[in-house]
Amino acid sequence: MTGGEREEEREEERREERPAGPRGPRGLLALLRPRAGAGQIAGGLLCLVLGFAVAAQVQSTKHDTTFATARQDELVGVLADLGQRSERLRADLRDLEDTKAQLERDAEGGTALEDARERATTYGLLAGTLPAEGPGIELLIGDPGHGVKAIDLLDALQELRDAGAEVVQVNDVRVGVDTYFLDGRNGVQADGESLSAPYRFLAIGDAHTMTTALNIPGGLVRTLRGAGATVLITPRAKVTIGAVRSP
């Protein structure tokens, strides 16, 4: 029980003994009249301490509001985040410094040339102008009922891209950033070329991630099977993508 409640209890006890205090503005005036006494002084001192504490608290809240109110576990999280980031940045810095040192070392520009070639290869793979090879999956969509539309193939492609497929080929068409699917008179067209069932997607990337992404409940495989198609996913240690796009 707190002191204030005790006060209220006493209030009940004394109601009979004492008359009610003065009402209205006169009460306020009576309240302001100074009365000396040990108790009064003690009350004044307490109020002084209270005022001091309020001012101190207000000042300290004004100083730093971002982290002062955060709890310990939040602060630990922030600190861990910062640590990770600085670690990553430091690694980046080391890499760049290595590259810089190499570039400075060979004056003929051998390293620079190698660097540029490497980058050209990467961009060629991404743009689809170079053949590629690597671990991935083969996704075979059989379409006995002619129920597979362009939108389904686009869904399949997007699902593969989301799951981290780096290089994708559909039948004989190498997929690029601007690849489109179109419902034509004789089946689906991709980038202007007619595709015929079964549609065979070859994708290079993490086989496990892509398989999981395709198989999620209510996902692509379920939708395609609902449309009457057969779906077969085969992870491969080596997928060879030979089709290229003209630059």
């Binding site: 009350g43 002084l48 301490v49 001091f52 504490a53 001012a55």
Partner: peptide, 15 residues
């Protein structure tokens, strides 16, 4: 009254 004065002095001191 003394309490009020105390409060004011306290706030002033704090600031």
């Amino acid at each position: 009254m003394i309490a009020l004065i105390g409060l004011v002095i306290g706030v002033a001191l704090g600031f």
